[in-house]
Simulated assay, not measured.
Amino acid sequence: MTINHTSLNNGFVSLVGAGPGDPDLLTVKGLRVIQAADVVVYDRLVSKEILALADTSAEMVYVGKKLDFHCVPQDQINQILVEKAKEGKHVVRLKGGDSFIFGRGGEELEELAQHGIEYEVVPGITAAAGATAYAGIPLTHRDHAQSVQFITGHVQKDGREIEWSSLAQSNNTLVFYMGLKQSGHICDKLITHGLAPDTPCAIIENGTRKEQRVITANLANLPRAAKTAVSPALIVIGSVTKLSEPLQWFNNNFEAIS
């Protein structure tokens, strides 16, 4: 069902995933919603090309985050969304990748629901799917991996450790978001729980963008490889990463760390 935003007294919020970087990966619905927005509340990783799609009369509100620095704390972002919607405006909350995969989209919708504000969700291509596709890495492959797991490299909110023993399976592909700073910890924990030190890995820097760079290594060398990479970057662990160079199609910016 399509909601008629203009009929809502308290405005409306569209939670939109902008995709992993390449502006052509924005969905058709995402484009339509952005063009109709009165206010666009956007994150750091949303490209300039996508921001330019908004109407020139739209209010643009930057609330970007990066590691160890939050331009606007999450509770204030929630408050901005509520206040703008209560002004009767159509607000687009624009996030890189997909809003429901390590994007705190669920937290923001919970706040809107508590204030009785209506909303919709427009999914985006998450970085794990987009960046690996552009790097020539299939997340699953009959000869390499029967499953894939997405994990955040950030410390969990309640301080709990990840279930490392369940991750250290040789027929699994692991994708760590925001994991550069924790690469040493990731390496140590996986090896301790049984994953072979020579397990192939890749770091995809600026995935799907023209500056994309792929760094290949093995698990034991992952921390050294991570020191050569810059954010935004994904860490991919598993034998599927061996396919990156032979299946590459997007660019030839590869580096191997031995």
Rank of each mutant, 00 (worst) to 15 (best):
L247G: 05
D198L: 10
K242S: 11
D198V: 11
I191H: 03
W249F: 15
A233F: 07
F250S: 08
K210R: 13
S166V: 12
I203E: 02
V236K: 00
A196D: 15
A196T: 07
P223A: 07
I191L: 10
S244N: 02
G238S: 01
R224C: 11
E205Y: 03
P197W: 12
F250K: 10
S231C: 10
T228A: 10
G179Y: 13
N171D: 13
C187W: 06
I204C: 02
T192A: 14
S239P: 02
Q182T: 14
P246R: 15
V175N: 05
A202N: 06
S166G: 15
S183R: 10
T173P: 00
T173Y: 03
Q169V: 15
A168C: 12
V240S: 06
G184Q: 11
C187V: 07
N251L: 02
D188Q: 15
L167A: 07
K210S: 12
K227M: 08
F250L: 10
G184W: 08
L234W: 00
L174H: 12
S183M: 13
V230D: 15
K181H: 11
L167I: 08
A217N: 08
V236N: 11
G179Q: 13
R213E: 09
K227P: 02
C187P: 06
I191N: 03
L222K: 05
V230L: 13
L243W: 06
K227R: 15
G207D: 13
L243I: 07
V240W: 04
L174P: 06
I215S: 08
R224G: 05
T192W: 02
K189T: 01
L190H: 05
T228Y: 08
I235Y: 05
F250D: 09
L219P: 00
S166Q: 14
L195M: 02
L234E: 05
K227A: 12
L219Q: 01
P232D: 08
Q182L: 10
T192S: 09
T199Y: 03
L195F: 07
K181G: 07
A202T: 10
S239E: 13
V175T: 14
N218V: 11
G179A: 03
T216R: 09
K189Q: 15
G179C: 12
S231I: 10
V230C: 14
L180E: 07
K242G: 04
L234M: 13
P200C: 08
T192P: 05
V236C: 03
R209P: 00
E245G: 01
I215N: 04
T216Q: 06
I237F: 04
L190C: 07
T208K: 09
A225V: 06
A229F: 00
T199D: 12
T192R: 13
A220M: 03
K210P: 04
R224H: 10
L180T: 10
I203M: 12
L243F: 09
I186E: 00
R213Y: 01
P223W: 00
P246Q: 08
T199C: 00
I203N: 01
K210G: 07
F176S: 07
T208Y: 03
A233C: 05
G179R: 12
T228M: 06
C187M: 15
N218C: 12
A220K: 12
G194D: 09
G207Y: 00
I186M: 04
N221M: 11
